[in-house]
Design a protein around this nucleic acid. Structure first.
Lengths: 234, 234
DNA sequence: ACGACGCATATTGTATACGATCTGTGGTTG
DNA sequence: CAACCACAGATCGTATACAATATGCGTCGT
């Protein structure tokens, strides 16, 4: 089920096959480039250039950009194009604050409905994440972390909240990787994930929610500190 | 500064002039139709039909639909078109729950930074809203309510939270109008708005936040009740 | 008679072509 | 010399035209 190795093969295949439309494929490709940092914040996305690079027309490029704008990854100014949107320190604080407000609350709602299958899936995810952390395959951290957190909250019965959190996690992606790389909090994050999972399975839902809150709070605080020190405002 | 009367004139002018692009104008037009209920949930939006109706090509229509999808107003299925997306009872509960979690928190951060100019603007908004409630000009309620709530939170310094709340308020739009129409809670809403404003200006920020919470909670509970009774699921 | 296959039609997705808007440069004028 | 206007280049926005995909019906086979 979970392919243990060589996600490369999947990635290498033309993404068009994995998507129903070209614009969706382009959106996904650009999303990965932005989240991985290949496209830095502030970078101007020229429609012509992208179209030529992908070997397609500008129409699907435009639609992909609109989809990305919906996720907050780029900002489109009419008649002036799209730029990769970085997060200011203020926005990062906000995003983490939101996660702190929402995630523990949802975990309390969701935890009791997690099935054994959910737990085994979450454990597999955590293992994969753990392995990725040790292997240093930075580009997969974000997605695995996102899937883990969303998986925990899956059964909260709050679809809108979930999609909002999905967006927040996506925006956290690159900053979180930065935080883990710089502080070396890798082991801590891994341990916290495991403990949260254990607490949920043991029915210690409130404790799990508290730990989740602390987990997110810590990442946020640590990250803000990093940004403040390097004085790398947007 | 604040135009006291005749917003009609502005509205009457071709919307194209108020927008930088045709697609933005179309998006706005469709948004109003959806929020006002002219386009009911489940309705299929044919690109050809819309293009012909607006007298333009399908390209801006498509881009408008993508923008609406970002706001959750329509759902696009590849190769199958877009349909107006209604909110299920579950989703409505979720949206109000989110507002309850977020708005009071932000008000506490924002209230102390509200300037006298802000207050006079908010009062003007409340007056306009009040007048609209009495006049029964249903289609303006949503926007006025939205601007009032967002105005209160303007200085919270949490841009991401604010844009999320803006989205939530938009999704509440039609349901809230329903709630006010059915329950006749018009006077209550008006009074609560005024009181919140007064408390903020008096520096009773915590009290204001509490009232805001109650204000939103009540609307949500009342609305869910209405939906449950009429058994009008999605 | 019932189910599966394949074609026809309608609708969406994408390419190409044209028009509108913005930015920067150079000249002109007070 | 500074400020404003005009123009040229580049980039984006939209219209038109074509290709790809989904749905419904008719036919065929068993």
């Amino acid at each position: 089920m979970a392919v243990t190795a060589r996600p490369k093969d999947v990635r290498a295949s033309p993404q068009a096959l994995r998507h129903r439309t070209v614009s969706a494929a382009v959106a996904e490709a650009l999303r990965q480039r932005i989240l991985s940092g290949t496209l830095a914040p502030g970078f101007q996305l020229r429609q012509d250039a992208l179209a030529e690079e992908f070997g397609i027309s500008r129409i699907p490029i435009r639609e992909a950009l609109l989809q990305l704008e919906a996720g907050g990854l780029v900002k489109i100014v009419p008649h002036r194009g799209a730029v990769v949107s970085g997060l200011s320190v203020e926005e990062i604080e906000d995003v983490f604050q939101l996660r702190v407000s929402l995630e523990p609350q949802l975990l309390i709602l969701s935890a009791r409905h997690l099935t054994p299958e959910d737990f085994s899936e979450l454990r597999a995810l955590r293992d994969e994440y753990s392995a990725a952390l040790k292997a240093g395959t930075v580009e997969t951290w974000g997605e695995l972390n996102r899937r883990f957190h969303l998986g925990l909250l899956r059964h909260a019965g709050r679809p809108r909240s979930l999609s909002i959190i999905a967006g927040l996690l996506q925006d956290c992606d690159r900053p979180t990787r930065l935080q883990l790389s710089v502080t070396g909090d890798v082991a801590r994050a891994d341990l916290e994930h495991t403990t949260i999972l254990d607490l949920c399975e043991a029915g210690e839902i409130v404790a799990a929610a508290n730990l989740l809150r602390i987990h997110v709070e810590h990442a946020g605080r640590s990250l803000v500190e990093i940004y403040r020190k390097s004085a790398a405002g947007a």
